[in-house]
Amino acid sequence: MKNFTLWTLSAAAGLLFAGCATYPDQATTRQMAEKMVFEAFSASPAHLKRLEQDRSQQICSKVGDAKLSQDEAAELVKLARESIKYPASGQIVGNWKTGDMLAHDGAGDRIRDGKTENRQENGALCQNCHALAPGEINVGNLGPALTGYGKQRGNSEAVAKYTYDKIYNAWVYFPCSNMPRLGATGHLTPEQIAHMVAYLIDPQSPINK
């Protein structure tokens, strides 16, 4: 035992001095990095909760080009399915005007000096990543253009349902995509998502003009 310890110690020292340090294994890296996360932020316990990953986020945090296994993909879709909640009213198509306003609103729930942004409701963030109504210039391109969304797909019940589910939890159709699971993470309420659906599919909405 003693010999073994000595040997490991000198081997470790040898590694260091020879300048051939080795990469830690994945579990060790994970442990070190997770510790860093929880030491790095000053926050109330409620705010610190935001650092904790749910199961889906854990699976979707693979380093580099590592691919999802089939089992993981299946689990993600199942978790996404189970997460989706509909408005109490049962109405999944709300008011496109409210949706229009929300789509262009990128604020909400950010934290500075321990205080959460003081607003009535969160913006929907869509404009940050998607082109919306024709001619709008200040739009991102992280996601595909949604211009003419309803014009192309119509506003059937099936389209409304797909769109609602997609916005509520984008990973139900595309596990680990870069689109946030805006309903499932609590960023948007079911009612807000219904307004987003209306904004995307209503023929009167500027996005379909």
């Binding site: 260091l16 340090a21 890296t29 990095a33 996360v37 650092l51 945090s61 380093v63 992280l142």
Partner: peptide, 29 residues
């Protein structure tokens, strides 16, 4: 070349891909 530098690098890589919060963002998004 130092083990702690390797460890730091690997932790940084891990963190770059680590998603959390209500926007599901890691740096890589």
């Amino acid at each position: 070349s130092h083990q702690k530098e390797y460890d730091m690098y690997k932790a940084g890589e891990y963190l770059f891909y680590r998603r959390s919060g209500q926007t599901d963002f890691g740096c890589v998004q």
